[in-house]
Design a protein around this nucleic acid. Structure first.
Length: 471
RNA sequence: CGGGGAGUGGCGCAGCGGCAGCGCACCUGGUUUGGGACCAGGGGGUCGGGGGUUCAAAUCCCCCCUCCCCGACCA
């Protein structure tokens, strides 16, 4: 079996990553540095990821809406930490309509501020709470070193923004989003296990009280932050006077959360599941789950059979497509479908047709088997589930194999330098982290309690930290 | 912004003072077709930009721009 990717995944992971994106036609660089063109193949995957997240977000009670991309610069400045955190990466419009603007307009890096300006109008009473909003939008953060999907100057994401009457309610909601939305979707649909935890003070979102993250282990061992969920406390409420009347008639500031997941997830899918032959898509988010390949010209009944199978697949809810382009050599087509990561390939040729069977080829393992026409639908359904599980299991194994205990900072550095993650007592690295002395390229990914549960605060004692290289 | 590398056809590259080339891709015709087919023909270029040296510059010199890789910042 020839590989469709020339860069070696083991020796040249970044080269391999870029080549997969190019050959699978997922994305291109845009004409402005750091921008990204998401091609139809890539966007089709993103749409499925988006649909899964959107469904879960709705289940969590949030409603979709849309806020403007342009924000008055003064809004950003109202929350001191927020503006300080974002100012280096802001794109600012100073000229519009042929004139220099009196007040510059910022292209949103995130929407806490505009949304709060509306919250403060919409929220009057405890009866208006909780207010649970979500929006699918593009945001701009000027990046110094862009990488397709992983770090682009403009990216697509979902940002949830909620306001609650009590700190407890906000806190509970944030944890629910973290676990029941993000972690659930990553496990069930993306087939990617994640490590959840609390961000250290250094890594926390600018303006948040607490930030939780879900971190994934990529194929080269590096970490990728796959979602963040923030408890904003009353920071933005105070900056924007977002207050409400309690049932007792007193006036209080709302307690807020915000949470986001972006097109970066596409990078995770590629880097976690991809292999030397290209992409390997989990069936749940594969735009085409089963590709029916007409191997070569045969009697007309062959083509009729393929069409009948296709119709039945579609009718039974399987995302299916037919490749009957027999003018393109068989090998080229096979390699192409492998690069694209299509979970199952069904081959129909004169050879099989005589016996009333098709050959089933799994993308994840490369295993082949023959299957009678009548059993194809049922067999593919089983295999799609098997492949989904297989990819998760492999990713889980990758994750487990990457984690290693360290009992000193030096030991942690050694582990991380070998492309693994060091788990270490947070107290042993607190100061080193604070002064940026963890080591080059290393960062604290997140913190958890020794029993694995989510901490409430970074000041809790006995916390454990993961230290690793990250994208 | 520091350190390193590279800009030549759509992509990947060679050429490094003397007619602008190669592989892949593309177009036409034919033969093929069970793991990247073959033969024949064809189209496509301001050699990143500007200035200079020279009879002659893709090639040498100066300035500028862009991209990629490694670090400091980030979903």
């Amino acid at each position: 079996m020839k590989s469709g990717i020339s860069a070696n995944r083991k020796d040249d992971f970044p080269g391999w990553y870029q080549e997969v994106i190019a050959k699978a036609e997922l994305a291109d660089n845009g004409p402005v540095r750091g921008t990204m063109i998401i091609r139809p193949n890539g966007f089709a995957i993103w749409e499925l990821v988006r649909d899964e997240l959107d469904r879960k977000i709705r289940e969590a009670g949030a409603r979709n809406c849309y806020f403007p991309m342009f924000i008055p610069q003064a809004f950003l400045s109202r929350e001191a930490e927020h503006v300080e955190g974002f100012s280096p990466e802001l794109a600012v419009v100073t000229i519009a309509g042929g004139a220099v603007l009196e007040e510059p307009i910022v292209v949103r890096p995130t929407s806490e501020t505009v949304i709060n300006s509306s919250f403060s109008k919409w929220i009057q009473s405890y009866r208006d709470l909780p207010m649970l909003l979500n929006q699918w939008a593009n945001v701009v953060r000027w990046e110094m070193r862009p990488r397709l999907f992983l770090r682009t100057t403009e990216f697509l994401w979902q940002e949830g923004h909620t306001a609650h009457a009590t700190k407890e309610d906000a806190s509970k909601y944030a944890r629910m989003i973290h676990e029941d939305v993000y972690q659930r979707v990553y496990h069930d649909s993306l087939a990617i296990p994640t490590i959840g935890g609390l961000k250290s003070d250094m890594e926390r979102f600018a303006g948040a009280v607490s930030s939780y993250s879900l971190e994934g282990v990529m194929g080269d061992g590096k970490a990728l932050q796959m979602a963040t969920t923030h408890e904003l406390g009353q920071n933005f409420a105070k900056a924007f006077e977002t207050t409400f009347s309690t049932s007792q008639g007193t006036t209080e500031y709302v307690w807020q959360t915000s949470w986001g997941a972006s097109t970066r997830l596409m990078g995770a899918i590629i880097m976690v599941h991809g292999d030397q032959n290209g992409l390997r898509l989990p069936p749940a988010i594969a735009p085409t789950q089963v590709m029916c390949v007409v191997v070569r010209q045969g009697e007309s009944a062959l083509m009729e059979t393929v069409n009948a199978v296709y119709e039945k697949m579609i009718a039974s809810g399987i995302r299916c497509a037919v490749d009957s382009d027999i003018n393109v050599p068989y090998g080229r087509r096979s390699i192409g479908h492998e690069i694209n990561g299509i979970p199952i390939r069904l081959e129909f040729g004169p050879r099989e047709f005589e016996n009333g069977v098709a050959t089933i080829i799994r993308r994840d393992t490369g295993a082949r088997e023959e299957c009678r026409f009548d059993d194809l639908i049922a067999r593919c359904k089983v295999l799609l589930d098997t492949i989904q599980k297989q990819l998760f299991d492999e990713a889980h194994q990758l994750m487990r194999g990457s984690l290693e205990n360290a009992s000193s900072l030096d030991e942690a550095r050694e582990i991380a330098s070998q492309g693994r993650w060091a788990e270490i007592d947070f107290d042993l690295i607190r100061d080193a982290e604070k002064y940026g002395k963890l080591g080059s390229g290393l960062s604290t990914r997140n913190l958890h309690r020794s029993d694995g549960s989510l901490p409430l605060s970074t000041s809790e004692s006995g916390l454990r930290a993961y230290v690793a290289k990250a994208y």
